[in-house]
Nucleic acid binder design. Structure first.
Lengths: 368, 368
DNA sequence: CTGAAAGCGCTTACAG
DNA sequence: CTGAAAGCGCTTACAG
């Protein structure tokens, strides 16, 4: 790959240290303390020096041929453009590289054909396992992977009983509902996101349960299904407004949808939070910086990614993985407020941020 | 990797087709038309059938050992969480997989130590070449790569004369300036982004040149340096307002910074676009969906990524790559408006979007 | 047109 | 404690 002097191999190190390649291999592959089990102290010393002097770096392709392990994992996300998934991947990538693995990512775009193609490409590359961040409600791809014996875990989106690393999205939805109910909102609506994603459906289910506990209803005409982006939020609001009386609050299962919703509300002459309260999801960095800072639910995306890699490692080492579930957190900002001053003119306020229910997200629940 | 029946190898295909592995290799590696040059029609047929029946998939690690080509490319981005870079990577990934390559991405976080570490990790994985999306103004890393003979190209951010795939950021800045000047803004300011990124500095330079052409000034106290995110935009506005008279327009070198800026302006009681016009950069999907839809500069991020892979392929095949430069485009929305009704109350308007200067971004300029 | 051999860089029993 | 050999899956001169 590099021109100039050719990349040093085990053989060149062996020659320089005047030992056999097998000895070099044993020494270099032992952890620092145990090298002396494999060679005399002076031999170890010679080998180590030769290796660093030559700048030896093990060729993983050679190794993988022998060991049938590539130390490669494949990651499939719906789309890296989505901040949430980029962050989950970042967590995976961190954990993987700490453990000597490298991670491939690609986008499935939530498209079945593309998904299949990407899975095969990764398998062709001989990844040791897969982390899927685009699982679906009823997912034939997962069943086929099990049949083929491909090691994999899920992340972010759950599906059936397959093991993975998730946030408790039901609880997140519930937090949103409790917050709105407590502030006095009476007629909340939901911009629900795609029906095939557990992250969307669980949040809605939790939201409904939370409203229910607060004595509030979520009639069908206050739920719109859509995507996860700003356009979806816009379209959602339009649909809600056309279908009858305006809701007094909106829960969007994604910050971007919330932003689009706010834009559309504004166009219809509705002020946030005075006419309509808005709660988003994910606490994207943008949420705090918006013209109307956004109340939202935060979940530990980086930790979800890191834990997902840990689970895959379990699988690769023959252990049975048990799903990890992280707790979400409510972050209160200006897009929601205590109701009952519908008439007063909007007073400019200092922005306020409050974080509720900050259970340590670093110590998730384990479940079997 | 998969359990159950073991992965078929060239040897198993050869056995099934009753020929030597070398024949199988030659046939399977020839393009569809030329297979008959290497074997009799019936042999070709037997081999092909055996391969598909067994589900043979070439093991790239075995191949790479022989050929010293991994068909792997490494991509380093500042951060995948950044929509722009996620999109550039998507383009790279598309082009790579169309050409039989796979792409590794990792984040450098614009941190020198992390950058070095990531480069070495990718090289240790024996990638055939590198695409760097985090080049710096004066970049020692690039010099060292050249010395070591590592094939690489740049994308998105330029540095010196190194070949790469870019947007014309100077021109983009100029478009922003011309737009503001034409609308009658007189005292524009810039939220400039980090000084080490050409994407930031070029946009500012172009902006200055454009103002200049319109007879406008850009005094030092109207430039603030910051990052690329919403917080940076917020902080930028605060700094601008504290340093004297409010500008009547703001050019942010990034949409996210623009969004933060709008939030901060609002907190200071300034309306967009009536008190202050705002222009962003990148035409992020969010831009159109914002409460105040954002005027911004669009550049073809996906094409930039695709072209970058093409350039790297040039390098890998011994051709001299010549940089590709794509034209940006002005997208007019509500965050800028014709000035001179400073007093009137803000009237709600239908959102409007207009795209100016839509030179085909699919046919970029080439330069040597 | 097809086969047999060598070898890419590594690891791992097997000897000693 | 150390070495020699075999072999992982492939490709590529070299023969015929």
């Amino acid at each position: 790959m590099a021109s100039g002097k050719k990349t040093p191999t085990l053989r060149s190190v062996a020659a320089a240290a005047r030992v056999d390649v097998s000895t070099v291999s044993r020494v270099l592959n032992s952890p620092a303390g145990e090298r002396e089990r494999w060679a005399g102290a002076d031999t170890v010393e010679r080998i180590l020096r030769a290796a660093t002097e030559l700048g030896y770096r093990r060729n993983p392709h050679g190794a993988s041929l022998r060991t049938a392990r590539s130390l490669l994992v494949g990651v499939i996300v719906p789309r890296l453009q989505d901040f949430v998934l980029a962050t989950v991947f970042e967590g995976i990538d961190q954990a993987a590289s700490e453990r000597g693995y490298a991670a491939f990512v690609t986008n499935s775009l939530d498209d079945p054909a593309q998904r299949d193609a990407r899975v095969e490409q990764l398998l062709d590359r001989r990844v040791d396992g897969l982390i899927l961040c685009d699982a679906r409600a009823d997912d034939a791809v997962l069943r086929r992977l099990v049949e083929r014996g491909v090691p994999f875990v899920l992340a972010s989106r759950s599906s059936g009983e397959y093991a993975g690393s998730f946030a408790d999205d039901v609880r997140g939805g519930r937090l949103a509902a409790e917050h709105l109910a407590e502030l006095g909102y009476r007629e909340p609506a939901v911009i629900a996101g795609p029906g095939y994603a557990s992250t969307a459906t669980h949040r809605v289910a939790g939201f409904r349960a939370g409203l229910d506990a607060g004595g509030l209803d979520l009639p069908a005409h206050r739920i719109v299904h859509s995507g996860f982006d700003a356009d979806a939020g816009r379209a959602g609001v339009t649909e809600l407004l056309e279908s009858g009386r305006a809701p007094d609050a909106i829960f969007a299962t994604n910050d971007f949808a919330a932003i689009g919703a706010i834009g559309a509300l504004r166009e219809h002459g509705l002020r946030v939070p005075d006419d309509v309260g808005v709660v988003g999801y994910n606490d994207t960095p943008l949420a705090a910086g918006l013209p109307v800072p956004l109340t939202t639910i935060r979940s530990p995306m980086l930790d979800i990614g890191r834990a997902a890699f840990g689970l895959l490692e379990d699988v690769l080492q023959g252990r049975k993985p048990s799903s990890v579930v992280f707790e979400p957190t409510l972050v209160t900002r200006d897009s929601t407020t205590r109701v009952r001053r519908r008439s007063g003119s909007p007073k400019r306020r200092k922005p306020r941020t409050r974080i509720t229910d900050a259970r340590s997200p670093a110590s998730p629940r384990r479940r079997t």
